[in-house]
Design a protein around this nucleic acid. Sequence first.
DNA 1: CACGAACCGTACCGTACGGTACTGATGAGG
DNA 2: CCTCATCAGTACCGTACGGTACGGTTCGTG
Lengths: 215, 215
Amino acid sequence: MQNVGAMREAGAASGLTERQGAVLEQALRLLVDGGEKALTTAGVARAANCSKESLYKWFGDREGLLSAMIAFQASKVRTLDVSAAKLDGDSLRVHLVAFAKDLLDVLAGDVSLALNRLAIGQASREGSKLGHMLQERGRRQIGRRAGALLEAGRKAGLLAFDNADEAYGALYGLVVSDWHLRMLLGEEPGSLKKDFSRRAERAVDAFLALYGAKR
Amino acid sequence: MQNVGAMREAGAASGLTERQGAVLEQALRLLVDGGEKALTTAGVARAANCSKESLYKWFGDREGLLSAMIAFQASKVRTLDVSAAKLDGDSLRVHLVAFAKDLLDVLAGDVSLALNRLAIGQASREGSKLGHMLQERGRRQIGRRAGALLEAGRKAGLLAFDNADEAYGALYGLVVSDWHLRMLLGEEPGSLKKDFSRRAERAVDAFLALYGAKR
DNA sequence: CACGAACCGTACCGTACGGTACTGATGAGG
DNA sequence: CCTCATCAGTACCGTACGGTACGGTTCGTG
């Protein structure tokens, strides 16, 4: 793993021991590499050099392991909100473009795609809270950053909207469109990732045309 | 099933016998009700009153059955393109709103959600063409309808855009935003479906503000 | 050193699934 | 009536997984 410090912090924040965090890291790696089918309890135990008995002691059952994986991954993401006090038209656009590009990068990430596929696969059987967890811990997190940015823009007189959620929904849709679904369906991200910057700029331009305050 | 005529037609279009179409219909029903885990060969055989041996004779293996289900469902959808020769600003907006609402209804449909979940679940293991099939047969189909509508709007001088794909992507994003993913993740569609009309109108208004020709 | 807790590695069990083989019934054609 | 093909129903096999139990090892503590 490439970031032990962040992992330890994430584990501590979730009440996990460092060892358990390492196990979850290996589980995520298995999931990313081979999909849900490859994520067997025996496989996790083998990859993490621990026993199945420990897995069941720590996480209860397979569902608990999956939940812990999602919570663990979410706890690693830290949303740095750079809500600058001074915003002009250019800096707002820069911040929006940076947000849009970050959003695309996050959604296109290996771990994000794997966890979303996992939660979607579990969503059919009712009672599975994985989808709700992913929604709450993932979307809310990045949504807060966007909400703060939009609110700052409005307070600075640069944006005009009544409903912040609606404005955020429009921004999200313009940025992401159907790319997330296409990546989830396995479309080769080769040609997609290259255009992220251009796509983010185009989307932000459209968003500003819709919600930018008349100069 | 509620539409034997359409099913027979769909089966005939795909080179399937009526019996095989009925089997696929039952398989889709199982998938919608219980998710992929409930879609076992024995379960399909029991639900459709056929033998497992026939399933393997007709569809080869489980993957073939899944592909046949997607192709069968896609063949049932017929895109009625009402490309009217006479378009004014109001009728274009009406057509766009109707398209947007149809799009939301399709994406929120039980079978659509179940098949998308299935294909996304299979997308992790490589070599699975289900995602590509769903993309090609589903998105292209409805994308053609939108493309024709947008092109008609441009020819009538009501829309202004350079790249039709980009305009369609903006329309799609404004209409759908992250609702499709949220539904795939299992969010209760109770509060969502009610607002489809309002949502479609808002999205089309925004789209026209972006791409409507200056009056 | 002695004791106990935690834990690894592995063997084990019950179950469920994908896929195959067999039997008997049905129905069309000569 | 005979024959052949199709198919339903079922029994069967190999495998793989989730979950549990147990022996052996390490390590902290008195």
